[in-house]
Simulated scan of single mutants.
Amino acid sequence: MNRQAVKGDLDSRVFDTINMILLGLFAVVIIVPLWNVIVSSFSSGRSLAEGGFIFWPTEFSLENYRAVFSDSSIWQAFFISVAKTGLGVVTHVFFCAMVGYGLSKRYIRGRRLYVAMGVITMFFSGGMIPTYLLIKSLGLLNTFWVYIIPALLSYYDVVILMNFFRNVPDSLEESAKIDGAGDWRVFLSIFIPLSMPAMATIALFNGVSQWNDFMTTKLYITDQSLYPLQMLLYDIIVQSQTQSMQNIGGSAIIETTTKGVQLATIVITTLPIVAIYPLLQRYFISGMMLGAVKE
């Protein structure tokens, strides 16, 4: 028994050591490029012109951030990004929860048909051109609502919430209805509070997707006043590449200045998600563990 205990303890230590080394290397692979972007955004144009990896700015400068914030379009783009992400997450989660609550009831007529139709949309879509024609026919081109309405429903999220709602004891709903509560009251007062971990997980994923999305703007928006931060960043990257090609062999000031503004915009774009994620992490972990343990 003692030999087995010593061997088991040795195996555990070897496993922990290897695991820590692998996780440490994985963390380095993630942190080093991110650190390079942040530090480079605080470097002067002369430092960026020298090229290479920057571990610490030799010439600290805030000119890149001054150039970004001096542009009035950055504030409008930031407002659009915050508005479409906040409103999009709330409406998406609530709409998916409503659909999932309805489909979780086995007595709903036509439930199998609705479920089958939803499953089909998980694997097949109409394509880019039919979707564009649909958006155009609905009058959503060059409107803020093109960010919200098409993203209301994700059947994958509906399935997650539908399975979660099925685990809620029927006795809770029955007792509430005996006390006179209707379906809306049961949904809002019982199912929504009990499903907060699942809804927070869906909100986190959808929020990151909404915040990083620029293809919707590229396909359906031509009005620059409706551009989010991500589309503004996309334009900066395209302009920097174009200017770099046009100025090969010439002055490097334009290229380095544009690169610095590009890096500063990347940091500003990423910062809100990095700040919000720790606040939702505990809900995210609880949501990911849903259904993992059965008693």
Rank of each mutant, 00 (worst) to 15 (best):
D71G: 06
I276Q: 06
S175I: 10
T242K: 14
F42R: 04
A5P: 04
L161M: 14
G45C: 02
G182A: 11
M199W: 01
H92Y: 10
F165C: 11
M1I: 10
E173Q: 09
F124I: 15
A97T: 00
F79H: 02
I80V: 14
R46I: 11
M117V: 09
V293N: 05
Y114G: 02
I190A: 06
V68E: 07
F26R: 01
G291T: 11
S44R: 03
K177N: 07
S286R: 15
Q246E: 11
L290R: 12
Y114V: 10
S47Y: 02
K177G: 06
I120C: 12
E173K: 09
F124V: 15
Q224N: 09
Q210W: 05
V37A: 05
Y114A: 15
D71W: 03
S47Q: 12
D157V: 00
A203Q: 05
G127P: 10
D179N: 13
F42E: 07
I120N: 05
R3S: 12
V208N: 04
V238Y: 07
I285G: 04
L48Y: 05
L229W: 12
L134I: 00
K218G: 03
G291I: 10
N19S: 15
D223N: 15
Q281M: 06
M122H: 07
L134G: 08
Y220R: 08
S104L: 02
M98A: 06
Q239W: 01
F214K: 05
G8A: 14
R3G: 13
L22P: 01
N212A: 10
G118M: 15
F69A: 08
K294S: 10
V238Q: 13
I190R: 08
L232T: 03
V99R: 00
L34M: 15
A181L: 15
Y234K: 14
W56R: 08
F26N: 03
G139C: 12
I129Y: 07
S137K: 14
L290D: 04
F95I: 00
L280F: 11
F205W: 15
L23W: 11
H92T: 12
L34F: 14
S251V: 04
L161I: 14
L87G: 04
P33W: 10
S171Y: 13
V6I: 14
Q224A: 08
T269Y: 04
I31S: 02
L279E: 01
Q76P: 00
Y114C: 08
M162R: 15
S209F: 07
S137R: 13
V267E: 13
S12A: 11
R111P: 06
D179G: 09
K84H: 09
I248N: 14
Y65W: 13
M199C: 02
A292G: 11
V261E: 13
L10Y: 03
E173A: 08
V158C: 00
G287L: 11
V99L: 15
A264I: 13
Q281D: 02
S175R: 14
T58S: 12
I285E: 10
K177H: 09
L141Q: 08
G291S: 10
W56K: 11
N212K: 12
S44N: 08
M20E: 02
